[in-house]
Design a protein around this nucleic acid. Structure first.
Lengths: 142, 142
DNA sequence: TTCATAACGTTGCAAGTGCAACGGAGTCAA
DNA sequence: TTGACTCCGTTGCACTTGCAACGTTATGAA
């Protein structure tokens, strides 16, 4: 029996992730015209409060150039405000505007609903699936 | 409690998949200088035998332009042979060369080893994780 | 047969990404 | 204080991708 790509775990994981990301992306694209990096930056800012580009870069797994450009677009759209850091003037402090907060509140609902659909789909495998995901993410040092 | 991106299932899935794909891609890039689309095309051909670009496109979740270009690069590298289809002259039949078969044999070993590492990492969650993945992939009609 | 329609693989092109380089700013030892 | 080094966010650039054409070939109804 030869190697079967469609039984290969990394391949299946990759397809499933792409599929789900794309479906969810369609929802927030319809809601607010956001791209994936923009969604991630917005979502992180919603939880973190005021932070620098570097902080976001480290936490949302995006290159700093991507975060920089996403932040600029979010600023243009009025969802994010940029300001200087008082002590370290290399840093730029990003923060949601009230409009951004409002959008994030709506998107959090959308996201929660989406995740509930997903968990329902996983059914009895949901807990172990989440646990497995955690194992994969923790062992980031191979 | 506000929305937390790093607890959001689609996000975690996406990061884990990207991480694992990238680690595995590094292995076959080192072994044979292949890109992800090239690996997928090669792997599919190894199992399917002679098929058209369209067949591959449908099965490996890549745009036909990506498959077309990957196939051309694989042909240049001597791993794949293109030939015309006898009955339908729109079709191009792709097939591994003996060199391609040999490479695929080696890569199948690498892939199997990688998957075993992955399953070991998942431990007791492995079965349910695979089952969950199957559920996600089956329900592709939302 | 003829002609409109669809399917095949390739190619052109706009958009996004990752990497490297940049100017500006902070740090720390000499 | 100076000067070498590091870090910040932005920008330029090469590369890949997804989509829409295109030429060629097959299909099917009139």
């Amino acid at each position: 029996m030869s190697f079967q790509l469609d039984q290969f775990l990394p391949y299946r994981l990759s397809i499933a992730a792409a599929e789900i990301s794309s479906r969810f992306a369609a929802r927030y694209a319809a809601e607010a015209g956001l791209s994936i990096p923009e969604w991630r930056v917005l979502a992180h800012l919603g939880h973190s409060g005021a932070v620098s580009v570097r902080d976001i870069t480290q936490r949302v797994h995006l290159d700093k150039s991507v975060v920089s450009r996403a932040a600029s677009r979010l600023q243009e759209a009025g969802y994010v405000a940029k300001s200087g850091h008082g002590k370290d003037r290399r840093l730029i402090v990003l923060q949601l505007t009230s409009q951004g907060e409002e959008l994030m509140k709506r998107l959090a609902h959308v996201a929660d609903g989406f995740q509930m659909d997903l968990l329902a789909l996983l059914g009895e495998d949901a807990q172990a699936f989440k646990a497995g995901l955690t194992r994969l993410l923790e062992r980031s040092d191979w």
